[in-house]
């Protein structure tokens, strides 16, 4: 059977998320009409979401189109990695090294990136961030983190 692949995946995604939330409400109290419990409203919403997902899935079969998808895997991995690395290192390495890592990692998400540009971009943006956020706005972030203290 043919189906609109975008609608089908959207519908299934919604149903899956609804199921996840509904499953999580199993330990929550539903309460009484006077004092609705913590589980009542989420379960209602999960039900509505599953229903909407189902409608989207059914609609997908009415209008069968297959879409070709280009997925930028390298981009996804690197772009998603950048904020995670920042979160993991900002306290330890400090703002300077951590922001340089973010810029460097995300820069390589583009296929057009090359070493010279990446280096320039990293130095330039790191400098800019330190000037604006740390010196200009006075964000309470240490420039050099605890991992690097006492080294060298």
């Amino acid at each position: 059977m043919n189906a609109n692949s975008k609608d089908l995946s959207a519908g299934l995604l919604f149903i899956a998320i609804a199921a996840l939330f509904a499953f999580q409400t199993r330990d929550l109290d539903m309460g009484t009409p006077l004092r609705l419990g913590p589980g009542a409203f989420p379960l209602l919403l999960a039900g509505v979401l599953a229903l909407l997902g189902l409608i989207i899935v059914l609609q997908a079969f009415r209008n069968p189109v297959t879409h070709s998808m280009t997925i930028p895997w390298r981009g996804i991995v690197l772009i998603v990695l950048a904020p995670i690395v920042f979160g993991l290192t900002v306290r330890g390495l400090g703002l300077v090294a951590s922001i340089a890592l973010v810029v460097l990692i995300s820069a390589y998400a583009s296929r057009r990136m090359h070493l010279k540009l990446a280096t320039l971009l990293t130095i330039g943006l790191t400098l800019f961030c330190v000037l604006v956020f740390s010196i200009g706005l006075g964000l309470p972030l240490r420039l050099v983190g605890s991992w690097l203290r006492g080294l060298g």
Binding site: V96, A97, A100, L101, L104, Y108, T122, G150, L151, G152
Partner: peptide, 20 residues
């Protein structure tokens, strides 16, 4: 490899002494 090299460089640049 280049990326790794750069990373190492960045970490080294960020490393300077601070009083204990």
């Amino acid at each position: 490899k280049r990326l790794l090299g750069l990373l190492a460089g960045v970490v080294l640049v960020g490393t300077f002494a601070s009083p204990i």
